[in-house]
Amino acid sequence: DNLVIALHSYEPSHDGDLGFEKGEQLRILEQSGEWWKAQSLTTGQEGFIPFNFVAKA
């Protein structure tokens, strides 16, 4: 599955970004460039995340 774990917390800075906490698990929905579309397994919310803040779970 496309699961990743957050290496750092991220505060959203643009509409459509997904904020998350360090250690949170996310499911990657789309990989494109440096911003990936993801869904939080904690909150169920979707949005874009910086790819370098996460690692394969």
Rank of each mutant, 00 (worst) to 15 (best):
D1Y: 12
D1A: 10
N2T: 11
N2V: 12
N2C: 14
N2D: 11
N2G: 09
N2I: 14
L3Q: 05
V4E: 01
V4G: 05
V4P: 00
V4C: 07
I5Y: 11
I5Q: 04
A6R: 01
A6K: 01
A6W: 03
H8S: 09
H8E: 11
H8F: 15
H8V: 13
H8Q: 14
S9T: 11
S9V: 05
Y10L: 05
Y10S: 02
E11G: 07
E11Q: 14
E11L: 13
P12D: 03
P12V: 07
P12R: 07
P12Q: 06
S13G: 10
S13F: 11
H14E: 08
H14V: 10
D15T: 11
D15Q: 12
G16W: 15
G16I: 06
G16Y: 10
G16V: 06
D17G: 13
D17T: 11
L18Y: 04
L18A: 02
G19Q: 08
F20C: 04
F20Q: 00
F20T: 01
E21G: 08
K22I: 09
K22N: 03
K22E: 09
K22V: 09
G23R: 02
G23P: 01
G23D: 06
E24H: 05
Q25R: 13
Q25V: 15
L26G: 00
L26F: 08
R27L: 14
R27M: 10
I28N: 00
L29S: 02
L29H: 02
L29C: 06
E30G: 08
Q31S: 13
Q31C: 15
Q31N: 10
Q31R: 13
S32C: 15
S32H: 13
S32G: 11
S32V: 14
G33R: 04
E34Q: 13
W35I: 08
W35N: 06
W35H: 07
W36E: 00
W36K: 00
K37L: 15
K37I: 10
K37V: 10
K37C: 11
K37R: 14
S40M: 03
L41S: 03
L41H: 02
T42G: 06
T42C: 10
T42I: 13
T43V: 01
T43L: 02
T43R: 03
G44H: 07
G44T: 03
G44Q: 07
G44W: 07
G44S: 05
Q45F: 09
Q45K: 15
Q45V: 08
Q45R: 14
E46K: 11
E46V: 15
E46C: 14
G47T: 02
G47S: 01
F48C: 14
F48L: 11
P50K: 06
P50S: 04
P50F: 07
P50A: 03
F51C: 15
F53I: 07
F53A: 08
V54N: 04
V54K: 00
V54G: 02
V54R: 00
A55Y: 11
K56T: 12
K56C: 12
A57P: 12
A57M: 15
A57D: 10
A57H: 11
